[in-house]
């Protein structure tokens, strides 16, 4: 974990330098009387680099101590760092992320109702590995319920699909 923190902290220092340089050259700092668009971002860039450096140093100082310190994470932390098979954990997350990206891509093309059903089907089949019957039931029910909620009750504009018109 300390290694991940060290990589991140170095990345943060580099990122801060980039932000400061961009603010200085493209946004301009302006004068004290009329601070320009780059004034605050420039300060933030420098602050980020400085904070990143402190963070980097601190990973050596507290090394072991915070391994035990921050066990209170999200739900996913339950598995903990004890299980080292990174590949298996990634295989749990990656399909989910890809399905959401696919959903976003199809959202306006297929329209809201179809893409939502498709999303639920993919999720139940690929992520949850449910049977077809349960998948179909969950997908149709949840898509219909949300359609009623958003389109009929809340009158939110949702795309109907450009591929059909």
């Amino acid at each position: 974990m300390a290694r991940a923190e060290r990589i991140s902290s170095v990345a943060l220092v580099v990122f801060g330098v980039f932000v400061a340089a961009y603010s200085r050259h493209y946004l301009r700092l302006g004068l004290m009387i009329t601070p320009d668009a780059g004034f605050l971002p420039y300060g933030i860039g420098i602050a980020l680099s400085a904070l990143g450096a402190i963070w980097f140093v601190s990973t050596f100082l507290t090394g072991m101590a915070h391994e035990a310190g921050g066990a209170e994470g999200g739900v996913g932390e339950a598995g903990g760092e004890g299980a080292p098979d990174r590949a298996r954990r990634l295989s749990g997350m990656l399909p989910g992320v890809l399905i959401i990206i696919l959903y976003a891509w199809l959202f306006e093309r297929l329209g809201y109702p179809l893409s939502t059903v498709l999303f639920m089907v993919c999720w139940q089949k690929i992520v949850e590995r449910e049977g077809w019957l349960k998948t179909a039931a969950i997908a149709l029910l949840s898509a219909a319920a949300m359609y009623i909620l958003f389109v009929y009750l809340l009158r939110i504009y949702l795309p109907t699909g450009t591929w059909f018109s």
């Binding site: 994470g73 999200g74 739900v75 996913g76 932390e77 339950a78 598995g79 299980a83 954990r89 990634l90 749990g92 997350m93 989910g96 992320v97 959401i100 992520v127 949850e128």
Partner: peptide, 15 residues
């Protein structure tokens, strides 16, 4: 929201 779900996805206790 999504950050929490992504973290949940990678753990074994899916269902």
């Amino acid at each position: 929201g999504l950050g929490e779900i992504f973290t949940g996805l990678e753990s074994a206790m899916k269902s």
